[in-house]
Design a protein around this nucleic acid. Structure first.
Lengths: 210, 210, 210, 210
DNA sequence: TATGAATGAGTGTTCATTCAT
DNA sequence: GATGAATGAACACTCATTCAT
């Protein structure tokens, strides 16, 4: 009977943690860590307050799980930054690959929460920095430096070039999380990314020195 | 009277509200609204808990005062965006004017807090958007559109161009508030601004159509 | 059937209640009623939490069972206090009979728990008093009074004499439960009982009136 | 006006801790540590729940204060056990000195609580043992040993003699705390002490060896 | 029977807010 | 005005009890 394949009314125990994390993410993004009520998280996950404590020992642990779970899907993306490839096609490609999840997943909310709680949970901010942000920035920086060495792009601080490149994406997701919910005009992150990459490529191109 | 001679003891009652606001800003930036304790704010302002309530009716009101007080100094800057002026000199100028306070004042902290509490205080996020962010963006957008009309810069969505222009500054400020306190390498916002403006100007320039 | 041959696996269902009571006794003695967790009792009894509820309706009921079960083995001892017998041999005998279980069984723990929870479970304290303590004391008191009537022991309040007689045993048991677990020197209850009975007999003896 | 001597409605801050400790003692004796509700303690002390936390950080800390406060008044009594004095007058004296507070103060309740919570607060049980019980027992033991050396009392384990001596007092206070509240006949501790001391003195006296 | 996931009432603790001084 | 002791509503967390399997 259990093999019949029809999903049972009661969900499997194994699903609960993820359901709770998903619910918690929403609540944390809305309220921040402190103002988030455990009861809200539980309710949104469709379980009782007590059930949450079957899977997480404290509210903090839920928060950590939420933030850490924001890592995994993004780690791979970073490793795709190959150095030997000419930048223009690489970036035009990457733009699509990156702006897609930024526009559609919850990652923006996590970024917002990490920023907001960075002083209350410094280890999490540090983990995000060390595991995601710094490596990603370093990868882009060295890809840019390599392109400079090949003469493809003009001189200048490659780290600052990298920041110039990715900042609008970050601002885009924060805009979406911060101002759109209070009535601001939406931002087409993908269009923004596309136009910005062209701007950036033109901006870092070698001047046509005759 | 306050200007007449050196007052024996500073901290005249008229200064209290501002001292409280300044203290509150620090605490709110560190902890967020919910986790900020009134007692900490009072202590940092050098007054008793009860004294805070002589000037502000609730913790929320202090928060509003903190965020609203972040407006004033920036409103003027925005109005300086003249439309008739060629963009390059204007922006090179503006870069200095803007990145200076971003790098040295508390404005970064306020931005962080506004982002973090945008869902708990939507009116504040809306006020920031409507009063500061949207007008500034609109001003830049129309300045850019005007420049496009004059043929100074190439076609493209002028709002997105504007976002491309200012995003690195915003990211720089958030970086300073979020990752530097947990050990990340500092960012020279002014250098970043300078290099980025050149990148942007080059990136939006008309292609050298012969 | 249970007596036929060696049962393959012990722990037949009929044993469960006693196993639970035994486990509960340990936990109650360690923690007291309130701080005792049903889960601990279940775990120590080697059953699931739910299984406990197949045999007992509430935690209180388990507690009652534990305390009441402390009665049975002791009720008989009390009835052995014959009145017509000369006290010295009777007591020297009793000493061994009584100090044996005091030193080796869990009765000390039960006494401790009954004392500790007497206000939370007054009926239990009352039951202990009415069923065990008062009858025992009364039996001893009248045996002593009878001996006084026979001129074997000197005048004095026979109830107080009875208390003088048994107190060290009680204190010995409580000492074992209270101070030995925190590092105090152990007490040899049997030796104490032996020496104390002689002291008592000498103390209540008729002064050598020539 | 404050000097007028009329006690103000609002009690002095300095009195609160003691009032809370007194209230807590009652509740702890009635319920035990776990079952005692902070709200009950607060109510019985005539303050709000929050006020308790102005003086004690946790419920445990209140408990410790209650138990430790049970030390002080008793420490001095112990030191009065002089060794060179003949035992009979010393003990007849001591009996009054000791049974007085046992009969009238809250010490019995504290003893009961220390016994009941000895496993949950082993440091407290240990502190009681090391600071009060063991020294008192040691003092009596050596006073008895000295008397034995002087030939005043007969041979035998002096520690056991000491236990024989004090046990009825202990049992008396426990009786008062445990069984009297559930309807048992009261015990006149002072009369018990008096008769018991005589019993003990006669019991340990040198047999009239011709 | 037996399990253990789930529930939700209960309680320790915090902290914005009040108010007697 | 200024203080900080006092209040009590709010919330994280626990655990006896239930019940689907």
């Amino acid at each position: 009977m259990p093999s019949a394949g029809a999903p049972k009314f009661r969900r499997r125990k194994a699903d609960r943690p993820d359901e709770i994390i998903a619910a918690a993410l929403e609540v944390f993004v809305e309220k921040g860590f402190s103002a988030a009520r455990l009861e809200d998280i539980a309710a949104r996950a469709g379980v009782s307050k007590g059930a949450v404590y079957l899977y997480f020992a404290t509210k903090e642990e839920i928060f950590r799980a939420v933030v850490e779970q924001g890592f995994a899907p993004n780690l791979q993306t970073i490793r795709n930054l190959a150095e030997g490839v000419p930048l223009p096609p690489l970036l035009r490609d990457l733009t699509v690959t990156i702006s897609q999840p930024l526009a559609t997943t919850k990652i923006g909310g996590i970024i917002k929460v990490v920023i907001g709680e960075s002083r209350n949970f410094p280890e999490l901010a540090r983990a995000w920095h060390d595991t995601l942000v710094a490596p990603a920035l370093a990868a882009m920086t060295s890809a840019i430096a390599a392109a400079q060495a090949r003469g493809e792009i003009r001189p200048g601080d490659p780290r600052q070039f990298a920041i110039s490149l990715i900042s609008p994406l970050l601002v885009g997701v924060l805009w979406k999380e911060t101002f759109v919910p209070v009535g601001a005009a939406a931002l087409d992150i993908r269009a923004l990314a596309k136009q910005h990459v062209e701007l950036w490529l033109a901006g870092v191109a070698q001047p046509e020195t005759a």
